[in-house]
Amino acid sequence: MTEHLTGIRPVLDDVLAAADRIAPYARRTPVLSTRIDGRPVAFKLEHLQVTGSFKFRGALNVLTADRDVRHVVAASGGNHGLGVAEAARLRGLPARIYVPHGTPEAKIRRIVAAGAQVIRHGERYAEAEAAARAEAAASGAGFLHAYDDPGVIAGQGTVGLEIVEQVPGCDTVAVAVGGSGLAAGVSLVLGPGRTLVAVEPERCNALHAAFAAGEPVEAPADSIAASALGASRVGELPFGILRERRVRSVLVGDEQIASARDRLWEELRLAVEPAAAAPFAAWLAGQVPGEHPCLVLCGANTDWRPA
């Protein structure tokens, strides 16, 4: 939707600019540092963000930077749509959000409550995206991509800025991955002494498949976390960023995700959606290195109940 801010891809300066731009509306979410199974671990509580997801940061950054847009169209599994809806509401803009059938009703209710119109289309995110792009092209609306947009990536990168400031001893950051916008944004601000772990469900593995193929390819999108991580193809722009950085790609199973989500509630009283528990599942399985890791809990937009 926006032009690339400083060339072919966003850079650290864009993330810093995004932090200033979104500061009046977005929350600086807290970090909880604790010990589990005798090991230190920190949780970035991004599920406490406005709209219950980090997605608000990217949408807000784009819609506050682009003053020419008059109405906006987006496609989403739920969280990006909610972020766009709320950012559009703050700007006084009409918004239409295309979601695939099967999107959790909890997310749809919140999108509607934020003032956007919801259009159900297709069974997968890719189908909803195609329909949203077609409407934008026909109507002249701005199409706001969920992850393959430099302004969105820069906005998501502000999560990483806060982690660096809040957990200065952090040596590893683990994030859940769908289209890879959050992972790409966070990677822009991590120095050479920190490792980024990109965690995906085994059956929603677009980034893992892209690393194996050397380019974005179609991948399955079938998981309990698919409403948030169900991109069937990683974004070209975030893949280009991540390919050049120190990234460890790991996979976790749905049972591991559900168990990790329940444990977050039982031990810490943190209620999150399945996607947010994926980094914790990887950490519990020994797939997140480092002595002082920080795990991003990315969202909580679900009718939550234990498994």
Results as ranks from 00 to 15, higher is better:
residue 301 N to Q: 09
residue 304 W to Y: 13
residue 98 Y to F: 15
residue 199 V to K: 01
residue 295 L to P: 12
residue 11 V to H: 13
residue 56 F to T: 03
residue 133 R to H: 08
residue 142 G to P: 05
residue 70 R to V: 12
residue 307 A to V: 12
residue 105 E to V: 14
residue 250 V to T: 07
residue 188 L to V: 08
residue 38 G to A: 07
residue 219 A to D: 09
residue 76 S to H: 01
residue 283 W to F: 06
residue 229 L to D: 05
residue 86 E to I: 12
residue 293 P to I: 09
residue 158 T to M: 02
residue 132 A to S: 03
residue 56 F to L: 13
residue 6 T to V: 14
residue 245 R to W: 03
residue 270 L to G: 04
residue 301 N to A: 02
residue 58 G to M: 02
residue 112 V to L: 04
residue 166 Q to K: 12
residue 264 L to E: 05
residue 122 G to V: 04
residue 49 Q to A: 07
residue 233 R to M: 11
residue 124 R to M: 13
residue 71 H to W: 15
residue 8 I to H: 12
residue 140 G to I: 00
residue 266 E to D: 15
residue 49 Q to W: 10
residue 111 I to P: 02
residue 36 I to F: 14
residue 55 K to L: 03
residue 209 A to V: 11
residue 210 A to V: 09
residue 165 E to V: 05
residue 246 R to S: 13
residue 229 L to F: 05
residue 236 E to V: 11
residue 5 L to T: 06
residue 269 R to K: 15
residue 31 V to F: 01
residue 302 T to M: 14
residue 209 A to E: 15
residue 138 A to G: 10
residue 301 N to L: 09
residue 150 P to K: 00
residue 247 V to G: 09
residue 228 A to Y: 02
residue 141 A to N: 04
residue 145 H to V: 04
residue 189 V to M: 12
residue 269 R to P: 01
residue 269 R to D: 12
residue 64 T to F: 11
residue 283 W to C: 04
residue 265 W to R: 04
residue 98 Y to N: 01
residue 53 S to W: 07
residue 140 G to T: 00
residue 187 S to H: 09
residue 298 C to W: 03
residue 150 P to C: 06
residue 156 Q to E: 08
residue 151 G to P: 07
residue 278 A to T: 13
residue 98 Y to K: 02
residue 215 E to N: 11
residue 226 A to Y: 04
residue 215 E to S: 12
residue 222 D to H: 15
residue 213 A to H: 09
residue 177 V to D: 02
residue 168 P to D: 00
residue 20 D to V: 14
residue 11 V to A: 14
residue 229 L to E: 08
residue 138 A to H: 04
residue 176 A to R: 06
residue 108 I to W: 03
residue 173 V to Q: 03
residue 50 V to Y: 07
residue 257 I to S: 03
residue 149 D to H: 05
residue 104 P to I: 09
residue 252 V to Y: 05
residue 99 V to W: 03
residue 252 V to S: 00
residue 228 A to V: 15
residue 169 G to E: 15
residue 83 G to Y: 02
residue 67 R to C: 01
residue 254 D to W: 08
residue 15 V to W: 03
residue 92 G to M: 11
residue 119 I to K: 13
residue 94 P to N: 10
residue 276 A to T: 06
residue 242 L to K: 06
residue 166 Q to G: 13
residue 159 V to H: 05
residue 195 T to R: 14
residue 262 D to A: 15
residue 210 A to F: 04
residue 53 S to A: 15
residue 182 L to E: 08
residue 21 R to H: 10
residue 132 A to G: 10
residue 262 D to R: 08
residue 267 E to I: 03
residue 244 E to S: 14
residue 267 E to F: 07
residue 19 A to G: 04
residue 201 P to E: 03
residue 182 L to A: 07
residue 245 R to C: 01
residue 32 L to W: 13
residue 270 L to H: 00
residue 60 L to V: 10
residue 52 G to D: 10
residue 217 V to I: 13
residue 160 G to T: 06
residue 180 S to A: 15
residue 37 D to S: 10
residue 180 S to N: 12
residue 242 L to G: 00
residue 263 R to N: 06
residue 27 R to L: 15
residue 280 F to L: 15
residue 170 C to L: 11
residue 140 G to E: 02
residue 54 F to M: 08
residue 191 G to A: 11
residue 18 A to C: 10
residue 233 R to H: 07
residue 16 L to G: 01
residue 148 D to I: 02
residue 70 R to G: 13
